[in-house]
Design a protein around this nucleic acid. Sequence first.
DNA 1: TTGACAAATGACTATTTGGTCATTATTATA
DNA 2: TATAATAATGACCAAATAGTCATTTGTCAA
Lengths: 274, 274
Amino acid sequence: MVKKQLIMEKSLELFAEQGFEATSVQQITERCGISKGAFYLSFKSKDELIIALIDQFMMQSVSDIDYIVRNTKDDQLLYEFYYAIYQSFHKHSDFAKVLMKEFSQTLNKELFFKMQYYDQLIEKNILTMIERLYGNSVQHTKYDLMYTIKGFMNTYAHLFVFYNVPVDLQLLAESLAEKTNLLARNATIPFVSAELIKMIQPIDEEVSKEQLIDLIGQKMEEIEEPIEKESLFLLRQQLVEPSLSPAIVNGLLENIRNNPDCKWISYLLRRYAF
Amino acid sequence: MVKKQLIMEKSLELFAEQGFEATSVQQITERCGISKGAFYLSFKSKDELIIALIDQFMMQSVSDIDYIVRNTKDDQLLYEFYYAIYQSFHKHSDFAKVLMKEFSQTLNKELFFKMQYYDQLIEKNILTMIERLYGNSVQHTKYDLMYTIKGFMNTYAHLFVFYNVPVDLQLLAESLAEKTNLLARNATIPFVSAELIKMIQPIDEEVSKEQLIDLIGQKMEEIEEPIEKESLFLLRQQLVEPSLSPAIVNGLLENIRNNPDCKWISYLLRRYAF
DNA sequence: TTGACAAATGACTATTTGGTCATTATTATA
DNA sequence: TATAATAATGACCAAATAGTCATTTGTCAA
């Protein structure tokens, strides 16, 4: 549906400029050159639109981060991690703006839980990364380290998302990787304990195999590209009845990984299925 | 004016719960038990209210931070700095919530510049602190360090402002002081350069002596307490025609420092006059 | 050319908003 | 008590909002 994509693009621009609440549906339809009715043919409500935007971006980001954490050699991991994050912020700076503007905590419950969910997935990835890189030596400080890394992400993103200055992303990633390493190897006083984390984190529910199969079915109908389509088909087969070799499965996952519409499914498959 | 204070208190609660845009003037007047007209006797508009709130809190915070940076011995400075910040966030958690929710960048221009102004004052204090503690050794990394410190402030504040968990502020301050020290002494790869800072920071204008004299005059009329009142009177005299000894001036500044209504003036006097 | 179906329109509604102002209540003063 | 001054009220307004729906327009195959 081309119209839906148009609305999402234009509204994202407006939200980044003015904020979500301050942007009216009328403004959106004007910028799209469509009528008000047409808007409501694509989205049930204004809320549904912002949710669609959040999902689109967060699914991509989480998938990308996960892929990097899983597939980068230790000695390059921190650097690649930061680099990927900031490249994503840079590429989708309108979106990053909206995220930073709106989702400190306001808006409706559904959105809040959604953000918390994605946030948690990212935290999980960061923790995996920390444990792999530093192992037992950060046993007591790993949660602090995780928060620090999240803090770095936010702080520096702020710096270049809101001010349009040219940024050397490689240098930024290097600089933050060094800082992170220093703290991981030398910090001794933990503040964020496992108990604290437990108090503020709800348990997230897993995605079931059946849900995954349904999801793949839906996506197959939306998608045009023959390679991606067949890959999805085969991966679904594999879920129902495993028969392919690991190398083939891996290849199929690679096929869909770089298609924005499939990223999320490839993430879910990596994470929950294979 | 008691009513003005009542409105500020109750509206702050509502803004913290629901956000600024989502809170109507009607809701505010209901919670205060006053009429709509009464609201507009105290504030010209809803915007003026939020500006008053921002000013009240930020003036206190900036003054407190400045005082600590000026009057703490080096070996305790980082700890006291973080401790003061988080104590303030803790004490004024409703306010901290509003700040974090709303002022990532939305709302009107005036407010944006106001926040930028206060932010800059804080940055200046952090830089002063860094330079005093580490001197030339952080010549190239001091702006990174400043951003990191700001990042720490934000990240950890988030953690305990939004989740109502009991927090050991001393431990938090210790932990962050250690991290800051580590980075200051060992980080070598700068990302935030002096040029970058220049690109994103407007020049702030100084407060003139005449403005200060006016300001003190206004405050003297508002204030009841005899000690504070006389101190203000004498300090104004001193501005017009210096005649008191440094010790006396210092004492007078101390007299007004802990009165929330005078904090800002004591800060301005320290900074721009004496 | 027709007719059936889907896509798109925009006038319309119901509600809410920030803000005003003629009126009324309260307090201080003489 | 009478008068003046100040504080407080809430009905009212214009503007804006999200969302609806009877109507029109466009696009097919037959």
